[in-house]
C-alpha cells in the first residue's frame, strides 16, 4: 500500500505526520461533547468495516479480493499506534517510580533499581546497535543474556512450586466433586508414566480387558470426558466473543466506556 521511505524523506514524513496529527487533535478538542461519541462510534465502525468486508467478500484463486492488498497497510497503522503508546507506558513508569523516590516512600530503593536497570538496558542496547564493539557487546550480553533472561527463567520456574501448592488444595478430599477430581487426576497422572503403565502391563493389549489398562483409562478420561467438556466451554466462549465483538463494533456497549465524559 505504501512504499517504504528512508533517510531525509522519512524524517520529513514523520514531521509532517506529527504536525498534521497535532493540528487534528487540537481541532478535535473544540468538538462539542455531544458530537464526540458519534464520532468515536463512526471511526470504530469504519475501521471494523474494512476487516468485515475483507473477510466476507469473495476471493479469487490467489485467496485475494479487492481489499486484501491494503491489509498490510492497515496492520502497519495499528503497529504505529501501538508504538506511540509505548511512550505513554514509559511516562507512566517514570511518573510512578519518580514520585516514589522523591517522596521517599517505603521501598523507594526498588524504584531506583528499576530506573537504573531501565537506563542500563536502554543505553547498552543503543550502543550495541549503533557502535558495536567488544565492550558494548559484553555489556549488552550481560544485561540481556546474563540478567534479564535468567530472571525471567527464575520467575517461570517458580510456577512449578505453585502448581504443587495449588494441586494440594484442589485435591484435598472435602466433597464428592473433589474426590472425583482426585481420582481422575491420579489415574491420568499415573497412566502417563511408565511406572503406572507397568502396573497393568499384564493385561492384554486387545479385547475387552485392554480397556482396563491404566493408560487406556487415562486416555479415555482425557479424550472422552476432558476434551468434550473443554470444547463445550470453548463453544460458549466463541459465541460470546462474537456477540461482544458485534456490540463493540456497533458501539452498543454503552455505559462501559466514555458514557458521560464524551
Amino acid at each position: 500500500m505504501f512504499t517504504p521511505q528512508h533517510d531525509g524523506m522519512l524524517l520529513v514524513l514523520i514531521l509532517v505526520t506529527m504536525i498534521v496529527t497535532g493540528i487534528l487533535l487540537f481541532l478535535l478538542s473544540f468538538l462539542p461533547v455531544k458530537f464526540r461519541k458519534p464520532l468515536i462510534a463512526a471511526i470504530t465502525f469504519l475501521a471494523g468495516l474494512y476487516y468485515v468486508l475483507e473477510f466476507f467478500l469473495p476471493v479469487d484463486a490467489a485467496k485475494s479480493n479487492a481489499l486484501t492488498p491494503y491489509r498490510t497497510g492497515f496492520a502497519q497503522i495499528n503497529q504505529v499506534l501501538l508504538a506511540l503508546a509505548t511512550g505513554v507506558g514509559i511516562f507512566s513508569l517514570f511518573s510512578a517510580h519518580g514520585r516514589a523516590i522523591v517522596r521517599r516512600r517505603s521501598g523507594w530503593g526498588f524504584s531506583v533499581t528499576l530506573l537504573v536497570a531501565f537506563f542500563a538496558i536502554m543505553i547498552s542496547g543503543f550502543i550495541h546497535n549503533y557502535f558495536p564493539g567488544p565492550v558494548a557487546d559484553g555489556i549488552y550480553r550481560l544485561c540481556f543474556n546474563g540478567a534479564l533472561k535468567n530472571l525471567q527463567a527464575a520467575m517461570f520456574s517458580i510456577v512449578s512450586f505453585y502448581i504443587v501448592s495449588a494441586a494440594y488444595r484442589a485435591f484435598r478430599v472435602r466433597s464428592v466433586e473433589a474426590t472425583i477430581l482426585l481420582a481422575s487426576a491420579f489415574i491420568v497422572m499415573i497412566g502417563q508414566v511408565s511406572l503406572g503403565q507397568a502396573i497393568t502391563a499384564g493385561l492384554p493389549t486387545t479385547g475387552l480387558a485392554a480397556s482396563f489398562r491404566l493408560e487406556t483409562i487415562a486416555d479415555w478420561i482425557l479424550t472422552r470426558i476432558n476434551s468434550p467438556a473443554l470444547l463445550a466451554v470453548e463453544l460458549g466462549l466463541g459465541v460470546g466473543l462474537l456477540s461482544t465483538a458485534i456490540r463493540l463494533w456497533l458501539s452498543l456497549e454503552r455505559g462501559s466506556y466514555f458514557d458521560r465524559e464524551v
Binding site: L81, L82, L84, A85, T86, G87, V88, G89, I90, S92, S256, Y257, F258, D259, R260, E261
Partner: peptide, 15 residues
C-alpha cells in the same frame, strides 16, 4: 502490561 491501554483504563476508571 500494554501501555496503549493506559489512557483507556484511566478514562474508564475516572468515569
Amino acid at each position: 502490561v500494554d501501555p496503549s491501554l493506559i489512557p483507556i483504563a484511566e478514562e474508564s476508571l475516572r468515569e
